[in-house]
């Protein structure tokens, strides 16, 4: 029987031989903290007073919310007029503030400790380029500006893409993660937010250099987007994404498995709206997990998982049942 780490690596190889389905993030150790993250995001915690991140976006995390979120209004948005973005936005200077090796030492040590436990160290890059754009100007302005002011939007995308490249490079060069979990949601549950050609023009180029560097360094690229993204899966492969995490069941997963033929692993498939509810029963959770395993397991290169952008369901009773049901499926299907 393969270890969880070995099984993870086999699952994502185009010609790999995994011996069972992984239980969600099994085999990885999620390791989000680092000096760049602390510098950009600030000290976020539940019940905190509103804070501004280094880009100037107001972030809220009231006691009754499960996660921090941007609070962008007409009054407080950083970029009020896209044609003036160079005057309105002060890009954070990562090189000046996060390049001291001494800052990174404790994080390098922690990562090594995790790796010693036979786990793949999974670093974290939240807030992708698309997400950063709407953090800065609000969702509606962002979408309209792609059409109305394409030149300024392209320049801003390029600037954010370069910032994110620097952010990634610091993490990769210092921590040397095995996996990078990188977030950018590009669609709703039924559709991309923008035309695929608009995405290709503005967003895709921002990932060429960043994901290309990680591929050079042997880092497994796990891109999170709990969205409908069927029209751009080939582009995602081209960008070097090894794992699309968060694949919603609204995507035709069996069709994608055939189309991709192992070029990109699909991770997700479990419908959160069914399983991750305060009133979800064990029977309902098992039924949905079993459905996902049976529907997508045989197609290969699939990791059954909740579609959120990191380990852990919102309600504590859910994860143990998901993992147990995947284990039952493995026992019945693969005998282990």
């Amino acid at each position: 029987m393969l270890t969880a780490k070995q099984n993870f690596l086999e699952t994502i190889k185009p010609d790999g031989k995994p011996d069972r389905l992984l239980k969600q993030y099994e085999g990885t150790a999620f390791f989000p903290p680092n000096p760049a993250s602390a510098y950009i995001r600030g000290n976020r915690h539940r019940g905190m007073e509103p804070l501004k991140d280094r880009f100037g976006t107001t972030i809220l995390w009231p006691e009754n919310q499960v996660a921090a979120m941007p609070h962008v209004t007409a009054e407080n948005k950083v970029i009020k007029e896209i044609t003036e973005w160079k005057e309105e936005l002060i890009m954070p200077d990562l090189a000046a503030n996060c390049s001291d090796p001494a800052q990174w030492e404790p994080f390098i040590k922690q990562a090594e400790e995790l790796r010693a436990k036979d786990q793949l160290v999974m670093a974290f890059m939240p807030t992708g380029v698309f997400e950063r754009l709407h953090f800065l100007m609000g969702f509606e302005d962002m979408l309209m500006n792609f059409l109305l002011e394409p030149e300024d939007m392209k320049e801003l995308c390029d600037a954010i893409g370069e910032y994110r490249y620097q952010y990634m490079k610091l993490i990769v060069d210092y921590i040397k993660p095995d996996v990078m979990l990188s977030h950018d949601d590009w669609g709703s549950k039924n559709s991309l937010f923008v035309n695929p050609d608009t995405w290709r023009e503005f967003i895709k180029p921002q990932y060429m250099k960043t994901y290309g560097y990680m591929k050079e360094k042997g880092v497994i690229v796990m891109h999170h987007a709990d969205s409908f993204m069927e029209p751009i899966v080939e582009d995602m492969v081209e960008l070097g994404i090894d794992i699309w995490q968060g694949v919603l069941p609204e995507n035709d997963i069996p069709k994608l498995q055939k189309q991709l033929n192992g070029k990109m692993t699909l991770m997700g498939g479990i419908d959160a709206s069914i399983v991750d509810r305060s009133d979800s029963t064990e029977e309902e959770i098992r039924k949905e997990v079993r459905r996902a395993c049976e529907a997508y397991g045989p197609g290969g290169h699939f990791i059954p998982c909740i579609t959120y952008g990191g380990p852990g369901c919102l309600f504590p009773h859910v994860d143990p049942i998901i993992d147990d049901e995947i284990g039952r499926y493995n026992k019945e299907t693969y005998g282990i």
Partner: peptide
């Protein structure tokens, strides 16, 4: 019908 996306809808509404 999937012929246009949210941005096009937004600029029309505007």
């Amino acid at each position: 019908a999937g012929e246009i996306f949210v941005p096009e809808m937004l600029v029309a509404a505007r």
